[in-house]
Design a protein around this nucleic acid. Sequence first.
RNA 1: GCCCAGGUGGUGAAAUGGUAUACACGAGGGACUUAAAAUCCCUUGGUCCGCAAGGGCCGUGCGGGUUCAAGUCCCGCCCUGGGCACCA
Length: 984
Amino acid sequence: MGYEHKDIERKWREEWRKRGTYRVENDPSKPKYYVLDMFPYPSGAGLHVGHPLGYIASDIVARYKRQKGFNVLHPMGYDSFGLPAEQYAIQTGQHPAKTTEVNIARYREQLDNIGFSFDWSREVRTSDPSYYKWTQWIFLQLFDSWYDHAAQEARPIDELKERFEKHGWNGNDDCAITGNEELDPLAAFTADEWSGFSEKHQQAILLRFRLAYLSEAWVNWCPALGTVLANDEVKDGVSERGGHPVERKRMPQWSMRITAFAQRLLDGLETLDWSESIKEAQRNWIGRSEGALINFQLIGHEEQIAVFTTRPDTIFGVSFVTLAPEHELIEKITPTEKLEEVRAYVTLAKNRSERERMTEVKRVSGVFTGAYVKHPFTHMDIPVWVGDYVLGGYGTGAVMAVPAGDQRDWNFATHFNIPFTAVTEHWDISKGADESKEATLANSVFLNGLKVADAIPRAIDELELHGVGERRINFRLRDAAFGRQRYWGEPIPIYYNEGTPYPLPESALPLVLPEVDKFLPTEDGEPPLARAADWNYLGHPLETTTMPGWAGSSWYFLRYMDPESFGAFATPEAINYWQQVDLYVGGSEHATGHLLYFRFWTKFLHDRGWIPFDEPAKKLVNQGMIQGISAYSPLYILGPSYVDTTDGWRIPFVDGSYLELPGFNHPHRIFIASSLVEKLSELDRTGEYLALDVRYVSNGIVDFKRMMELETRADIRNGLFVAPGVCWMQGVAHAYLRTEEHPVTGSQDFDTNPVVEKMSKSKHNVVNPDDIIEKYGADTLRLYEMFLGPIEQSKPWDTNGIEGTFRFLRKFWNLFHDQNDAFRVSEEEPTKEELKVLHATLKKVEEDIDKLSFNTSVSQFMIACNALQELKCSKRAVLEPLTIALAPFAPHIAEELWQKLEHTDSVTGAKWPHWDAQHLIEDSFSYPISFNGKTRLQLEFPIGLSKEEVEAQVLANPEVQQRLEGKPPKKVIVVPKRIVNIVV
RNA sequence: GCCCAGGUGGUGAAAUGGUAUACACGAGGGACUUAAAAUCCCUUGGUCCGCAAGGGCCGUGCGGGUUCAAGUCCCGCCCUGGGCACCA
């Protein structure tokens, strides 16, 4: 009886599906609102309670906006290409498409249980050929484009070709050109020369300008995964997924020229309503720095060494030049007698893994090349060194070393005893470098006496005047690696004619992922696609690498606008109607990956005229993580011993006696499976903690009874548990729950150590939303997730707290029902007080949704419910609008009550109730009377009273008089409807 | 090291410069009940005085400041979480 959440929720899920309640049409007569959640990857683990947090928030906004009269696009789909399915395929032979299908079905089921208002008719999957046809199409457009820096936009490559035909190329006429430059700079050519070039040569040159291009590039090669990783997929020298070692390697590589858009990606941030931390992360990632490019003439060679510096003002402090070990001039300039030594160092430095270089930051290493350059102003000889503190991939791979102004240079110079002088006033160079921007220059000829800020432009002017340098803006952002030596991704629509890449014609799209016998690289190290029979286009070999995970997710928001569109990724009508995403909700871990590529592709599509806006999402909210509370029990290993049981199980255990463990109230007896003991002894992990499955833990105490109940179920291998008598862990074969000699009988509790950390399977702290919904219902789950705290904050999940929201829903239900659960709503006129509760709630909830402050709106509903219960109010005029307002938060119960209120339409379409300020007007206000800011008493006065009247009445009050002890107050401050403060 | 976010009861948290701790959990007490569940009511920052009614003092990471009034604004620190990093 009462609020039967299971029946209600089942009924309405079914009803919504039947009625097509959440279907959205592209209806230009209505104002639009686009709410989007970040694309989920359908992992095999399914959803835990942390995942839907953002979806619930966006669903509330979507439903609210719909009630406010907007046509709301709120779609969902799957970023369904990706590594885990492929890893699983390699292990099991199961086709990734199949695994993905199963995982998606599971995701869908879980999502459906929560009651989201997604329009599933618009679902997209990146691994669906009808979708990736357009991912490939966009790739072809990128291949067909170059970046015109003068116009600051992407243009068709044909225009560049025309330009070459007419004017040739002067070496740098404002075209973006990256990749291969440091190894093989592209020389200028005339129009005549261009015409004389072979087709192959012309294509090779055009490739240097295309926005999707193939080049020899340094890549992060991960041998264990057999693939190339992007910079943001590598963390601490190992792969982000799986933690395998990664090495630097040079190989032909498809890349995206995102660097061409660096300045616009930076500038565009100013226009976005995104969190400051995400914008800052992107700014750091793009890493713009202003400075100068300075050329140092090599002595005895034609070449110059170009360096980039942000401190050209310290030019007179240059005491040596350092090249990165990868620098191409090293071989050339090193005299024969030094060659062996230099080569040895270069080999060593290059082979030092990223990890070593990271952990040995403080270790200075380098070698003198024997070569010298000329100082551009003083014409003194400056030695050239090689040092691994200079990075090959940043700037020009060379620095002018100013030990007096840069700490790293100072360390290097000090280590190798290279002499140097101060370049700023009053500085003791024996103590370190003066990196202060407030310093005044010294020993610097024409810069003497200038502040750093003034010296920099002056130095650049001089460099330009002497033709030895120029103003230069440098970006940290690198071009994005685009090819993956992987099977489960979009095939790159490129074929090769005598080694030259050509685009497939649009008519050949989609280039469907072929069947292969194994999902592994071939014997000679080719990617899996090389295994496919007939992997060619009209006899020409097709590209065998596939696109990275971020390809499909860089434009998916456009496909939702028009998912069926056959002739375009979306029709112009659909794009013009839906425009940008109004609210984008997702995790902040995508700050520099997805969110940057997403913006990049949007800018590109804008430049080429396919979409009318150049930022994908106006407002972005990062939901915080919901953390798990892990329950730890100390792990004591006292040495393995075994007991054979009568039924043939080998019960390994560790000392059968109870242990008094420090910090725990109850004695422990811990048994550990033999294989585990061996493993742990090897690892020497005695004294560490083991995680217990949180399903058995309540308030930090293990509920032994519950554990026994749950573990008699079929799937006993799910997780670890420790009991007074038994320890059992996932993946340990020789463990058994019950023994003859050590029967587990009692319901003896024991303590665990709670630790708040990331919710994950490996920590046994995962809470599954399905379990919560089973017990409390989806509406309670939705409310509770919102009630936990501000959306963007991380917070631990504590199932114990959920009772509060569950109780609230039951109380709300009871407002509509009598003691016998008969529906009873009166048609009486509401009282003034009841109306005040209603309108205060509508006002607060509306304001809070606009601020995305959902926790406070849930509180307000609770306050209203408590107040109405107190007032014994069951009047339609109050409850009906409240039901509409609650619907975005708890749609099932609201729909049920709405129906009971004799409505035949859905509450989803009900107009959001208008709140009226007249119901909120108070007659009087209870003033806190404070003395020197400390509240001492309350006095009630009518609202209409003037400041002076209030002051007079307050001072006339006997209690106030008593506190004043007859002395006149220094000052009395009256803030109407706020406070009275008396200064004594 | 640099950048960003944050620090308030036992816990999750609330508070346009204006009554700090709303709402909820937990805890304690009580009502109803044969009992349990459910529901409802009361208490719940610390501390001191008082039999009590009630009252005093202290309290939003620490130290200063502005203000009639500071969790909120300013200056200087400390701590936690996240991001970046031999980036020239």
